[in-house]
Nucleic acid binder design. Structure first.
Lengths: 158, 158
DNA sequence: GTATTTGTGCAATTTTGTTTCATTTGTTAC
DNA sequence: GTAACAAATGAAACAAAATTGCACAAATAC
């Protein structure tokens, strides 16, 4: 089955907030037994609807207080070069998120580092070290107004 | 205590990948008993080092395939207006992430919606409906090269 | 109408998480 | 060096949660 019913959505909403919520509690909230919740969770995990289950670590408390946005513009958009660059960004732990985009830029990155100095060193490695990068534009986050990977589940009509 | 030792970091690395890993398995991997892992996890949760525990839902599979980047430039940067705008972005479910930044833009947003049409409707609500927004620039994600909230824990020196 | 599929709740079972307690380890004071 | 103390640990007992087996009910197919 590929379609989500109201119960699946109700379960996902809870799991997006806190995936340690006991299945019994979830069941109570959505009107199912714990067993039924468990089976639905298992199915959604198998189908890839639930992609991952993760802990979110506070970046400030572990000494990574600097969050940056970088727009990267490539010299050439040849698939070969793009793929190489994707692989580099993917493999760089400081690059928390990387999107290949249309519009003014080619890539948008979110980078998390301990200090601006570390960022400078990083730019040398991944930007100046890459001949195919024509230009990059950095913005520094002053306030993490909203951070998450939530997908809004309010208006799904299956 | 505020400092993380090597064992804490090893535990966090695992939890950032999969927070359903049984404490026994974590213990085995890092060289601790399950009880010790449990106590460290509890402490880190209490201290806010572990901020949240969440499921990540696949946006494509639930009918939200469009991811967008938006840079927003404000008319006035008066704190009052900025705060109001932050509150709006925070309260909008389609706005998955929102950062207040320095640089060419004032805000950077990541938006997840079912279709470009939905995005157009959203822009009317949250951008054109806000007099203080001077300009916004949209980029459309073609490839979610790397998506996560991981913080690199490799080079922590406490 | 009956057969089949799909999903459910309940209860038994298994696994996991939590607490207790004695012991070890490391630190400080003398 | 050694005694006293604090912090963290592992093993085991215990509690809670997840998982499975099974009988049943609703929806669908025939």
């Amino acid at each position: 089955m590929e379609i989500l019913d109201k119960l699946d959505i109700a379960i996902l909403k809870i799991l997006q907030q806190d995936n340690f919520t006991p299945q019994r509690d979830i069941g109570q909230q959505v009107g199912l037994s714990a067993a039924a919740v468990q089976r639905r969770m298992k199915r959604m995990k198998e189908e890839g609807i639930i992609q991952r289950n993760i802990s979110v670590v506070n970046r400030e408390k572990i000494g990574r207080p600097i969050t940056l946005f970088v727009e990267v513009i490539m010299e050439s958009e040849k698939a070969e070069y793009i793929d190489t660059t994707k692989a580099i960004f993917r493999a760089t732990p400081e690059v928390q998120q990387c999107y290949y985009v249309t519009g003014d830029a080619d890539f948008v990155l979110i980078i998390v580092v301990p200090s601006m100095h570390d960022y400078e060193l990083l730019t040398r490695r991944i930007f100046f070290g890459n001949d195919n990068i024509k230009h990059f534009r950095t913005m520094v986050a002053m306030d993490l107004v909203k951070v998450g990977l939530d997908v809004s589940l309010d208006t799904i009509l299956p």
